[in-house]
């Protein structure tokens, strides 16, 4: 509660305003948090996106770099084609709402992953298919409050605490450290219902692309497992390009 004192001037005004307009400081804080989340969304989410990225998976014995190109439309549709290494080349993944298909060129088969399989890790990374499948906006499934402020790598951040507002989410609670100027999360922690920390995400290499701040490197780490986690590096990103509808059909998997 006393964290409100430390807010920057700009935010103080907003808080004051909202404190007056709404009932009490708690809901006011929640609203602030919502606004911050909205701003983050604005930065991070676009209507459509085409990204070329690399995933660096640190296995126990070796490091693998997997390149892919993804097309996304909102949170519900995405299509990913793996570009390298040779073994993965041509493997495609299509997500429509809560369904996921994987196509492998070597077998010319499309397999739908369901239930149990979605909980497996993707390519040996610290991410599960399910983690990738989450297609709802954070504010649709979480209630946020501002927990405090912290400086990370000389950047001031707000600490948001998100608590699930609906039941069917994987992580009951998240903590997000949001850059106070750029409205980019710098760090995220995912918690179990009991409060046990499960996963940690660190976002870095924040640069301006097409007028918005965007983290080009994301590190995912399953804190219960040993190792250095998985890096996700954006090579190229296009915001709001036109993506033809056929991309998001099963037929495009076999192309």
């Amino acid at each position: 509660m006393n964290t409100a004192r430390n807010f920057t001037g700009k935010m103080k005004k907003i808080i004051l305003l909202f404190s007056f307009l709404f009932l009490g400081i708690m809901s006011g804080q929640a609203q602030d948090a919502q606004i911050i989340l909205d701003k983050v969304d604005k930065n991070m989410v676009s209507k459509t996106e085409i990204t070329e990225s690399e995933m660096i998976i640190r296995g126990k014995r070796n490091v693998q770099t997997i390149g892919s190109k993804s097309y996304t439309e909102g949170n519900k549709k995405s299509f990913t084609e793996y570009l390298y290494p040779e073994r993965e080349r041509g493997t495609k993944m299509l997500k429509l709402e809560d369904r996921l298909w994987i196509y492998s060129p070597s077998t010319d088969r499309t397999i739908q992953l369901s239930g149990h399989m979605l909980r497996q890790s993707v390519m040996g990374s610290d991410l599960s298919y399910e983690d990738m499948m989450e297609d709802r906006k954070l504010k649709e499934i979480y209630d946020a409050i501002i927990l405090g402020e912290e400086t990370i790598d000389e950047r001031k951040t707000w600490i948001l605490e998100l608590t699930a507002s609906v039941e069917n989410v994987s992580y009951h609670k998240r903590k997000i450290w949001v850059d106070q100027e750029r409205f980019i999360p710098l760090k995220e922690e995912l918690f179990a219902k009991s409060g046990q920390l499960l996963k940690k995400t660190t976002l870095s290499d924040i640069s301006q692309i097409d007028g918005r701040w965007y983290p080009k490197k994301i590190n995912f780490k399953d804190v219960l497992k040993s190792g250095n986690g998985t890096d996700f590096i954006i090579k190229k990103i296009q915001f709001n390009p036109a993506i033809p509808a056929y991309i998001f059909t099963k037929a495009s998997l076999k192309k």
Binding site: N168, S170, Y171, A192
Partner: peptide, 14 residues
């Protein structure tokens, strides 16, 4: 440490 999911798929660990 035990990690499980509840009926909604939400992680829990204790």
């Amino acid at each position: 440490l035990l990690r499980w999911r509840d009926k909604h798929g939400t992680f829990d660990a204790l």
